[in-house]
Design a protein around this nucleic acid. Structure first.
Lengths: 340, 340
DNA sequence: AGCGTAGCTTGAAACGATTCACGATCTTCG
DNA sequence: CGAAGATCGTGAATCGTTTCAAGCTACGCT
């Protein structure tokens, strides 16, 4: 493993290391002929620049010289669950924004574990990534401070926090809209189905819905806490809802996966959706539109959340000292299809 | 941005830099009292070790000293589409295997673009990642050679290649199994629905199916090429299948997302599945079991593919020079539910 | 010829960590 | 008491790259 370095390239091309570096970084400073010779040497040796050394050297100078176009930087995106289409869509939005700005995005999973989350963040800090976009699971103010001390910008997705920028959706409003719609189509016995452990956004959806329902003069919705926000659990929820007497006539699910599993199972059991039970989901994932009964749901601007989060991270870097944390709050919409 | 370095920690704790480094890496060499003092200094200053410098220095020595437990290393996982549950499940398998071996996984997306794929690989090479697991889109032998020259191990997922290890599923067998099942339940006019651009695995599924059908004495299946392997396209496929005369009585979809969209739309249009048209999918994603008509499908051991790929990458590193590339081929199973 | 200029190239000094051969103390024991 | 270990700490060398002041040529101009 004779890891080729810039020095060997220089020897091969018969120039100094400084010149090779110039070919790599400011090719216009180097004469055409030399440039070609160096490029050929690089090709022949299969040289790949060692980013560790590069960054090690650069950080110092970078603060001095302010000009020139930004170098390409890497941002970490930490999500809790890779199998959740909501999360992956958010990530795609961020990915796209970062790419367009000429940067790279890497993703890490915390897998709902605070330990893994911490480990991922440490990795990013050690690698001196430019910033982190995170859907937090156990993140505390001290973790954020530590990241910032290591020079990273931090943006929270779907959570708020006083000590960092955040991009989130107004879930209370989302819950209100969902409940109002169910009430509007004449439903009176409403249930809320969610998954444990209940995340902050789910609680907000529940609270918004509950408040709307109570204010309309009905009693608080029954809450069914399933094991996860998955279609399989939605299926199980169907059984439990039907076992209630009287069963609800309207169900608000904390996400679309639950809703899809629920609807499929209800349909299979001969319950008509929405005639017998109306179901409304949350997220508007792609599958929602093509479900057995096309799903009425609360659309979250997932892509935009990711996009905004990325913009916030870039802004934090751009603004430096003068940066003030901002909380971007987006509003969800009601998408009416057939299930409610 | 007074990026704290080991030197400042040393000053603060009143020791030399060597000692701080020892506290970090071989704490047993340092006296209790000193260790505490250094740890306190690290805490107060919010010091995070600069991984760039660390690795820069380490590579040289690492080859010399063979002992000690492996340092934690980062592996890149490059996938083409983050929204595909098949890919994300594979990734989780890999993630888990790498984690258990004490390493980290980062994911990058190529988004079906060869340019982005190349860019992602370059990033990993520059960062001197330990290895790459990739579902390739436009990867060539030269790209692999270049990665290897930079010291990374390379494992292909779901594709084969002579110059790297690979973990894949026998899709020809999968196609055969699917077709044999449809024939076995008496279907004679079989259609195959796939998405463009058709990837190698999809072609193999199609070929396996076609061969089985022809050998059974029926005519080659009609092939419907949709724009993507998504539920939305599955929906569109339903319309096109029904427009055929006579319509097929059995459909083999290249993946479950297509099949789910297709079944939902058929059901909505009053076509009974499987009585009128039997539908079989491919992948066995979580949603398959809880679909409106529970999906009969070809189960790919996705998790194991990821796991095996990770093992291959680790083995390549462990074995060094003596490493021989291996092709791991797993066999898919038939999962019979209700749709066929 | 003399001089200024522009265009290329060079070489050495960083960057922040790890490593390793050596000192400096402190114990222990014949 | 003195020598031999043990136990801790030190500090310089090193990794591969970028940067920058300075050097070298060749050229144009007066």
């Amino acid at each position: 493993m004779p890891q080729t370095s810039i020095r060997e390239v220089a020897r091969r091309a018969g120039v100094s290391v400084g010149t090779v570096s110039n070919v790599l970084n400011r090719p216009d400073l180097v004469a055409e002929a030399t440039r070609k010779r160096v490029r050929a040497a690089i090709e022949e040796l299969g040289f790949v620049r060692n980013e560790s050394a590069r960054r090690l050297r650069q950080r110092a100078a970078r603060t001095a010289g302010e000009f020139g176009d930004e170098p390409r930087r890497a941002f970490g995106v930490v999500i809790e669950d890779l199998t959740n289409p909501y999360a992956t869509d958010v990530v795609r939005g961020a990915d796209q924004a970062l790419n367009e700005a000429g940067h790279d995005a890497l993703w890490l999973s915390s897998d709902h574990s605070a330990a893994r989350e911490r480990r991922s963040l440490e990795l990013l800090a050690e690698q001196r990534a430019a910033g982190v976009l995170i859907i937090p699971v156990g993140l505390g103010a001290d973790d954020i401070a530590r990241l910032r001390a290591a020079g990273l910008s931090v943006v929270l997705i779907d959570r708020d926090g006083a000590d960092a920028c955040s991009a989130q959706v107004d879930h209370v409003a989302g819950g209100e809209i969902a409940a109002a719609h169910l009430l509007g189509i004449g439903r009176e016995r409403i249930a809320f189905v969610t998954g444990a452990p209940e995340s902050q956004p789910c609680v907000e959806r529940r609270d918004g819905a509950a408040r709307t329902i109570v204010e309309a003069g009905f009693c608080k919705p029954v809450v069914l806490v399933m094991d996860a926000l998955s279609p399989t659990e939605g299926q199980a929820a169907a059984q439990r809802l039907l076992a209630m007497s009287p069963p609800p006539d309207g169900v608000f699910c904390a996400n679309d996966l639950l809703a899809i599993g629920l609807i499929n199972e209800l349909t299979r059991l001969g319950v008509r959706v929405p005639q017998d039970i109306a179901v409304i989901g949350y997220d508007d994932i792609e599958l929602a539109a093509s479900a057995a009964v096309p799903l009425t749901t609360i659309r979250q601007p997932r892509h935009e959340i990711g996009w905004e989060a990325a913009e916030l991270a870039l802004a934090e870097i751009r603004e430096g000292q003068s940066h003030q944390h901002r909380q971007v709050v987006l509003t969800p919409d009601l998408v009416i299809r057939e299930s409610a």
